[in-house]
């Protein structure tokens, strides 16, 4: 069995290449937040404490538009709804843990942490490494958080932005591409992915990343339906 220390190291290593996308995104989010809040201190606190890049960008946009606090909170909740799905998918892996671990992952869970670790978590669940696999997830999460905070601090203090022409916003997308390329595809998965992809593109103009959530949910439901039909046949 791999020790907690080894698992943590594995988690750090698998997430390391993503720093190239996470840190620049942190700079952008930190700089925007420092500008909107007119304070480096509050920018650092929001960037480090909330640790949700998309939600933070949406919140800052709404505050700039003069939206009231309740609207900002609801928008952030909607943007984060996809985490319900990650939470449900990961929950079996953390069921043996106490509430402290679960609360920690309630703070640290991100798209990238899920995308990068999920397949290996599933493999480990059936191996002798199962009891320590939460350390693997923790390592991947912490790498993300440290990279994000370094970017957030630079952004908050300097307030500058990286040139959009570098296309660094595409780095996380490539991590999602890897998760897709190594997925064990079956009919139901293909149906889920096609429906989710088509709808999310069609609804890309909707505010608050609603298109992403509606597309993913519709894809999930279509996939479940396809799986049921295949079983009935």
């Amino acid at each position: 069995m791999r020790s907690p220390r080894q698992q943590f190291g594995d988690g750090v290593r698998i997430q390391l290449p993503n720093i190239a996308g996470v840190t620049p995104f942190g700079v952008i989010a930190g700089a925007l937040t420092a500008t909107v809040m007119n304070s480096a201190f509050w920018s650092l606190l929001i960037t480090g404490g909330v640790f949700a890049g998309r939600a933070q960008m949406v919140a800052m946009q709404l505050i700039t538009d003069g939206a009231p606090l309740l609207v900002v909170a609801v928008a952030v909740l909607v943007v984060n709804l996809r985490h319900l799905m990650y939470g449900a998918a990961l929950a079996p892996h953390f069921q043996h843990l106490g509430w402290r671990w679960k609360a920690l992952f309630g703070i640290l869970m991100t798209d990238l942490a899920y995308a990068v670790t999920f397949q290996h978590m599933e493999r480990m669940a059936r191996s002798e490494d199962a009891p320590t696999r939460h350390w693997y997830f923790f390592g991947a999460c912490m790498t993300n958080w440290v990279a994000w905070m370094i970017g957030g601090a630079i952004g908050a203090l300097i307030g500058g932005q990286l040139p959009a022409s570098w296309g660094l916003d595409f780095v996380p997308t490539l991590a999602f591409v890897l998760a897709l390329a190594t997925h064990a595809w079956d009919r139901a998965s293909i149906v889920a992915a096609v429906v989710a992809g088509l709808l999310s593109v069609a609804l890309a103009g909707l505010p608050w990343s609603l298109g992403l959530f509606i597309g993913a949910l519709a894809g999930l439901l279509a996939g479940v339906r396809a799986a049921r039909r295949a079983e009935a046949a």
Partner: peptide, 25 residues
């Protein structure tokens, strides 16, 4: 069964707009 479909559904919903849309179009 649904949980196994989370990955393809959510990941493609993240990737497809990043590839096929520009400023929402």
């Amino acid at each position: 069964r649904a949980l196994r479909l989370v990955l393809p559904a959510v990941m493609l919903a993240l990737v497809a707009p990043a590839v096929f849309t520009r400023a929402g179009a």
